[in-house]
Amino acid sequence: MSVETAPREQPPAAPPPVPRRSGMSASQIRFFSLLRREVSRFMKIKRQTVGAPLLETFLYISVFGAALGSRIKTIEGIDYVTFVVPGLIMMALSVNAFSNNASSILQQKFQRAIDDQLSSPASPLELLLAFTFGGFLRGLLVALLTFLASAALIGIPIEHPLVLLPGLFLVGFFFAQLGVLVGVRAEQFDDVSFAQQFVLQPLIFLGGVFYSASLLTEPFETLTQFNPVHYMISLVRYGFLDFADASVVGSFAFLVVACAALFALNLRLFTTGYRLRA
């Protein structure tokens, strides 16, 4: 066998020269390779990562929309099924963005496969962004499919696309970051399930996916104001239906600050190598 190694005539002190025929810089190639790896992971198990969440969303639509909706009829003058769908889209986006990243990072830590990325020249920022957008894209895919199917079945309007698109981006980014944080901190799969089942899921359900917070009695209406997911659902619902039960500007401001804080925290973890490097 003969394996070509680095050409000897090059000065060994210099990093291997990389031709730029593809038009991308080495940093861009690194980032897209890291991202492709994340996307290829969830696409290889798409029955679990895309199919199952879609089915779950449709079960919610069936139960809360068709069955319960026949009794509730409208909320704030909006048909109940239509009212619920934006919340379900937001839930699909957030849960998938979160669980993808938490599971992917923990799984790679278990297998130590993540060492391949960690020992490469990739910077902490490149690693963090690639992991983040891996889950973000999965969440976006499930959310988009949910939207397309819902639009075909019951006709969901988009009243404020300029609010909806950045709103969805921020929600997806926030939960993708949260997934990264939990994945990095987690030492066993139980840690990820705990965060998802005991923290995330209750916050989402109690944040107003299936109802408007204004319908709640005290102290629950006030308590809902302390649930960060409430503002996200409200923002997404406003983008779709022109109905919000929290200030749109306030929700945006909260999301931007929360995303920035989480991003800064995660970047610090990747830079210091917390629970990633020994």
Binding site: A26, R30, R36
Partner: peptide, 11 residues
């Protein structure tokens, strides 16, 4: 992917 992490172009 490994080659990509090290910035190697596709070809």
């Amino acid at each position: 992917f490994h080659g990509g992490y090290f910035g190697m172009p596709k070809k």
